[in-house]
Design a protein around this nucleic acid. Structure first.
Length: 588
DNA sequence: GCCGTTTTCGGCCCGACTGTTTTCAGTCG
């Protein structure tokens, strides 16, 4: 799967063009193509083989021929030209906030600066002072930007951000008179990680709200404080901006600040064709405002229904809305059970009973206790003997806890040699088997793919847990042919997990969308190790929604009877020949 | 470099803020 590789090259070309000051439209074309490739769940090589590259929005003849060139030769001539004389370390400097391509180019051309250390030294030694348009404040800004870049990528897990945002909004509601108030930006779109946070509000008295905001206990430092906008850094190091807007502009502002940028650009192009102009204050025909108080009326001016924020990534949602074909998205209240829950029998931090009661409090009909198998030694994985003892313990809990069905499950290792960590008869005795890769994670693609496919072919394996093994902003995905995995999942009736842990979110939205397209079933669960973590379900739900997934594709929206039916069917579907042979043998 | 309700050429989203300037370039979201 070379989608990511080529996408990075296109992005790099765009950066080089930007540095050289070439046409912004051409830069944007490369960026759009880069984006199209990361959003393309299908393997670009297959699209190429079919001759369909130019049917992908954002990819025209030029991009298609460059992709073809890369797939055939491993190189792109245009890329080599674009980056000539521009070291990668120089491109890295474009990440410094406040330092754009124009200024960077002057700094590079006049002083020969090529990396962050040289830049910092030059700024401190006053060598930037004589350059045009660079005064004391600009240089101060650059130095601050350098610190920010050094401090890290700046994107934080949604799971860490959302609780802070919610706590800020509820504190504001307590202390001031607020009308509407919502987080905008990538928080509202529920992206897996977030840069900074925008909150929008209406209020009778903006100044007092900003005043209250900048004196919240969350505040570490105040960056700006005016009548309508305040900006703070929290103790967690998050930048939070609060804007108070007029009620008549609230919808337009919310739409505008929610983004995504690509979604908004597309929307404004359509507006222009309708003779309208959209900005953060409203929708205008000439000077006349025709909408703006609610998002619904903003979309309505373009003859579109309201589009859920989770879909606003310019991945076809605007076209779907225009045809009135927006998907019906799965909702958290439709989830009937959590199927991936650990207890202190392995590496969980609470007893089975605590976890089960917490699941019952979530309103679930069923819960699966799925502790690790013995190969996961660090996680105190269970061997067969302990598994049997656990089964007996669960039987007791079933009689003690009413109102929730308890499934005895396992999160079983798929061993490096592609065998399962439990024998077939042991798996067959469990209610549910989730098979996951936890070891030998650096295997090559062919080996790793064979390993996961083999697990799916086992009729006793129901689910593949955190299929790609990636960690958000951290460890990359396993080298795995996901296209083959998803096809096999559909073929064998094996479900793929959307793991709701904020650091995993695995499958991600792109893979989950592909699973939907290819007819593979999904399970959304939390992989909880503590009762509190059952609340993470909403992050998995968000991934599914971002992937356009509806309830019919999520197995744990089914009631327990229908879910058990699926469990039984999986065993028939996965290996019909083997089972027939077995049945024949038995009848002899 | 892409693309078509301005359709094979000529457009390409929009506005605010900052800091540097005397009317605006650069950067950001």
């Amino acid at each position: 799967m070379k989608n990511r590789e080529i996408s990075l090259i296109f992005e790099h070309i765009a950066q080089c063009l930007e540095f050289r000051g070439e046409s912004t439209f051409r830069q944007n074309a490369y960026r759009r193509a880069a984006r199209a490739l990361t959003d393309l769940a299908e393997d670009v090589e297959e699209v190429y083989a079919r001759g369909d590259l130019e049917n992908v929005a954002g990819i025209g003849a030029g991009m298609a021929s460059k992709i073809a060139e890369y797939l055939e030769t491993g190189k792109i001539q245009r890329y080599e030209e674009a980056r000539k004389g521009i070291p990668d370390t120089l491109i890295e400097l474009m990440k410094i906030p406040g330092l754009g391509p124009k200024t960077l180019r002057i700094i590079h051309d006049r002083l020969g600066i090529e990396n962050i250390d040289q830049l910092e030294a030059a700024a401190r030694e006053g060598r930037l002072d004589d350059l045009p348009r660079l005064g004391g404040k600009s240089i101060e800004n650059i130095l601050r930007g350098i610190q920010l870049v050094r401090a890290g990528s700046g994107r934080i897990l949604l799971g860490n951000v959302l609780p802070v945002v919610e706590s800020i909004i509820s504190a504001l509601r307590e202390k001031t008179t607020l009308g509407d108030c919502l987080p905008a930006g990538s928080v509202r779109r529920m992206r897996e990680s977030v840069g900074d946070i925008d909150i929008l509000a209406t209020a009778p008295d903006g100044r007092s709200v900003i005043e209250a905001f900048t004196s919240l206990p969350h505040v570490h430092s105040v960056l700006a404080k005016g009548d309508t906008k305040g900006s703070i850094i929290t103790g967690e190091g998050l930048q939070v901006d609060l804007r108070v807007v007029a009620a008549e502009s609230y919808g337009a502002a919310l739409q505008y600040f929610t983004g995504s940028k690509d979604h908004n650009v597309h929307l404004r192009e359509i507006a222009r064709k309708h003779g309208l102009k959209i900005n953060e204050y409203g929708v205008f025909r000439g000077d006349k405002r025709i909408a703006g108080a609610t998002e619904e009326e903003v979309y309505a001016t373009l003859d579109l229904p309201w589009i859920p924020p989770v879909l606003r990534e310019n991945r076809g949602e605007i076209e779907a809305a225009a045809r009135n074909r927006l998907p019906r998205l799965v909702r958290q209240q439709e989830i009937r059970g959590d199927l991936h829950v650990h207890s202190d029998w392995s590496d969980g931090h609470a007893s089975m009973e605590e976890m089960i009661r917490a699941a019952k409090n979530m309103g679930y009909q069923y819960v699966a206790i799925s502790d690790h198998s013995s190969a996961a030694t660090i996680a105190k994985g269970l061997d067969v003997t302990r598994l049997h003892r656990q089964a007996a313990e669960i039987e007791k809990l079933r009689s003690r806890i009413s109102g929730i069905e308890i499934l005895h499950a396992t999160e079983m290792d798929i061993r490096p040699d592609a065998t399962c960590d439990f024998p077939d008869d042991i798996m067959a005795g469990l209610d549910l088997v989730i098979a996951s890769v936890h070891s030998a994670m650096k295997q090559d693609e062919a080996t790793m793919t064979r390993r996961v496919l083999a697990a799916m072919e086992n009729p006793n394996v129901h689910v593949i847990g955190h299929p790609t093994g990636r960690l958000v902003g951290g460890r990359g995905a396993l080298r795995l042919n996901m296209e083959a995995v998803i096809h096999k999942a559909a073929e064998t009736g094996t479900a793929l997990e959307i793991n709701s842990q904020p650091a995993r979110l695995d499958l991600d939205d792109v893979n989950a969308r592909r699973a939907l397209d290819l007819g593979a079933m999904l399970i959304i669960d939390t992989d909880s190790h503590h009762p509190n973590q059952l609340q993470n379900m909403r992050f998995g739900i968000a991934v599914a929604q971002r992937a356009w997934v509806g309830p019919e594709n999520v197995l744990n929206t089914r009631d327990i009877r229908s879910f058990r039916q699926w469990l039984a069917n999986k065993q028939k579907k996965a290996a019909p020949r083997k089972r027939r042979r077995k049945a024949a043998a038995a009848s002899v």
